[in-house]
Lab assay of single mutants.
Amino acid sequence: KLETFPLDVLVNTAAEDLPRGVDPSRKENHLSDEDFKAVFGMTRSAFANLPLWKQQNLKKEKGLF
């Protein structure tokens, strides 16, 4: 399991300012399950079932792209 970080560490943070080991294209993977659901309004599995373009739009909207 990946290390999780608080939302404010990941949202609207440039790649070079992210904690070590965080993939800038997969910031959402480093949210706790609770934060993930609070941000996206759905579970990880529901998010994973969305088309890629919709996932990317949601990530942009939430500052996690």
Score class of each variant (00 low, 15 high):
30 H>Q: 02
57 N>D: 14
53 W>T: 10
19 P>G: 04
8 D>Y: 12
14 A>E: 09
65 F>K: 06
49 N>G: 13
27 K>E: 03
37 K>Y: 14
8 D>K: 10
20 R>N: 15
61 E>C: 10
6 P>T: 07
54 K>L: 15
18 L>C: 07
27 K>Q: 04
9 V>T: 08
9 V>S: 08
41 G>N: 14
25 S>Q: 14
55 Q>T: 01
1 K>R: 14
43 T>D: 15
53 W>P: 08
39 V>T: 09
46 A>T: 13
19 P>Q: 01
59 K>D: 00
39 V>H: 05
11 V>L: 12
7 L>A: 06
61 E>K: 09
25 S>C: 15
35 D>N: 05
40 F>C: 00
30 H>K: 02
48 A>K: 13
59 K>I: 04
4 T>P: 06
27 K>V: 15
47 F>H: 00
50 L>Y: 05
47 F>I: 00
39 V>Q: 04
13 T>H: 08
16 E>W: 05
56 Q>K: 11
24 P>N: 05
65 F>V: 09
32 S>Q: 04
24 P>V: 07
10 L>S: 02
29 N>Y: 12
10 L>T: 02
22 V>N: 04
34 E>G: 10
24 P>D: 06
5 F>W: 13
2 L>A: 11
36 F>N: 00
28 E>P: 03
30 H>W: 11
50 L>F: 06
40 F>S: 00
9 V>K: 09
2 L>S: 11
61 E>F: 07
1 K>Y: 13
55 Q>K: 07
10 L>M: 03
64 L>H: 04
50 L>D: 00
30 H>C: 04
23 D>W: 02
43 T>G: 10
38 A>I: 12
21 G>D: 09
12 N>S: 09
55 Q>Y: 01
11 V>W: 06
37 K>D: 13
20 R>Q: 15
19 P>W: 01
33 D>H: 07
51 P>G: 04
18 L>I: 06
25 S>F: 15
40 F>P: 00
63 G>A: 04
65 F>E: 13
53 W>F: 10
30 H>P: 02
19 P>E: 04
38 A>K: 13
36 F>D: 00
44 R>Y: 05
33 D>P: 08
46 A>W: 08
57 N>P: 00
38 A>L: 15
48 A>R: 10
27 K>H: 02
13 T>Y: 08
48 A>I: 08
4 T>M: 08
46 A>K: 12
2 L>C: 14
53 W>E: 14
26 R>W: 07
4 T>K: 09
30 H>L: 05
25 S>E: 15
3 E>I: 10
28 E>S: 01
34 E>H: 11
19 P>N: 02
6 P>F: 03
11 V>S: 07
6 P>V: 04
28 E>F: 03
59 K>Y: 03
47 F>W: 08
